[in-house]
């Protein structure tokens, strides 16, 4: 087990390093840097001025060196101007260069400054992630129990009419991406056309206080798309368990159908869905970005869109790190959880 954990962790760290490097490279491509220079200094710069601006701000160094600085394993750049003032990556404006730290990167907790929001990236991400965390919590509360119920009900008697009906529902739910279900839900529940007006079509007010009225539609939109997939996995797993010998034994011993399902089948049938639910997290990130844009809820996904749309390099890098870490951690958790839940698997 220990060897498995060590290997898993090493692969994870390697993956994280490669992925952040790729994101760093893609966000720091020459055209992006040129746009950055023009938006930070002046829009009418000549090519030579852009080049000297980039050089003064440490963007002209080799890619690997810049990545090392951003990560915090290479010493930050310094630049001595003609009049003798020294500026640098680790030297905040107004402090003498002698007091500055040598390394300042993500590892030291310095995530850089957002050019759009004019705030430290770490602060923005912390608050936005909090908002998205609330959204995700309610999505999970709604999605997981209903998906498992749907899957177990349709998997316990494979091929029955109940199974056909529920399976079609889950197929329809996987066929409806968030931007479709969101639009349909808004039209049905909050437009003047249908006239129900039960919920609000925007979740902007949910950032101050969550009510059922302003938060249910975004939660439902994300939950619907993921629900079908988990339900189908649960159904497959449940249907397989129901054909096992020990289920037949239990039935022959006279146990009632409800008891067999609840006591004998359910526990074994829920191992596979656990992995699927864990792997669902990164996939939900997509939904979060779409839904937060659609409902104007200013969480992590909304921030990512803003950062990408406005060439906010440091913020986009910060968002990517968070996204990549979430994906990798959930992948590892699903692997380890699978091993722990299923005693038939030996890792070493």
């Amino acid at each position: 087990m220990l060897k498995f954990l060590v290997r898993r962790t090493l692969t994870m760290v390697a993956t994280a390093l490669v992925l952040t490097f790729v994101v760093f490279w893609l966000t720091n491509l020459p055209p992006n840097l040129e746009k950055l220079a023009k938006s930070e200094a002046s829009a009418r710069m000549t090519d030579a001025e852009v080049e000297s601006w980039l050089e003064r701000n440490g963007h002209a160094q080799p890619l690997l060196k810049r990545y090392g600085e951003w990560l915090g394993v290479a010493p930050g750049w310094t630049w001595e101007a003609a009049d003798g003032t020294v500026s640098g990556r680790c030297i905040p404006r107004g402090t003498p260069p002698e007091e500055a730290a040598r390394f300042c990167g993500v590892l030291q907790g310095n995530w850089g400054l957002s050019t759009v929001f004019k705030q430290p990236v770490s602060d923005i991400i912390a608050t936005r992630l909090g908002l998205t965390g609330i959204l995700m919590f309610w999505v999970m509360v709604l999605m997981v129990p209903s998906a498992l119920l749907l899957g177990v009900l349709s998997g316990m008697r494979e091929g029955s009419r109940l199974d056909r009906g529920l399976s079609t529902i889950s197929i329809a739910s996987t066929a409806t991406p968030e931007y479709v279900s969101g639009v349909v839900l808004i039209v049905v529940f909050s437009s003047s056309l249908v006239g129900l007006r039960w919920f609000k079509g925007t979740a902007a007010s949910a950032m101050d206080g969550i009510t059922f009225e302003n938060f249910f539609l975004p939660v439902l939109t994300i939950a619907l798309y993921g629900m079908g997939y988990i339900a189908r996995m649960t159904r497959a797993s449940m249907a397989e368990v129901m054909t096992q010998q020990y289920i037949r034994t239990a039935r022959l011993k006279g146990a009632g159908f409800g008891r067999v399902v609840m006591r004998h089948a359910l526990r074994n049938a829920l191992i596979a869905p656990f992995t699927v639910i864990m792997l669902q997290f990164p996939w939900l990130l997509n939904g979060v970005v779409i839904v937060e844009t659609l409902f104007n809820y200013k969480g992590f996904g909304w921030t990512l869109v803003q950062a990408a749309g406005n060439n906010d390099i440091d913020l986009l890098l910060g968002c990517s790190v968070v996204a990549v870490v979430v994906v990798l951690v959930t992948q590892a958790m699903s692997d380890i959880g699978y091993v722990l839940l299923n005693p038939r698997i030996r890792v070493s």
């Binding site: 893609l26 966000t27 992006n32 990512l304 996204a323 994906v327």
Partner: peptide, 18 residues
């Protein structure tokens, strides 16, 4: 492991064509 939406935002931009 790359979030799809992020990959799209990085790969499908007018700048990247240059």
């Amino acid at each position: 492991a790359f979030p799809v939406i992020l990959l799209f935002y990085l790969l499908v931009t007018p700048e990247i064509r240059t």
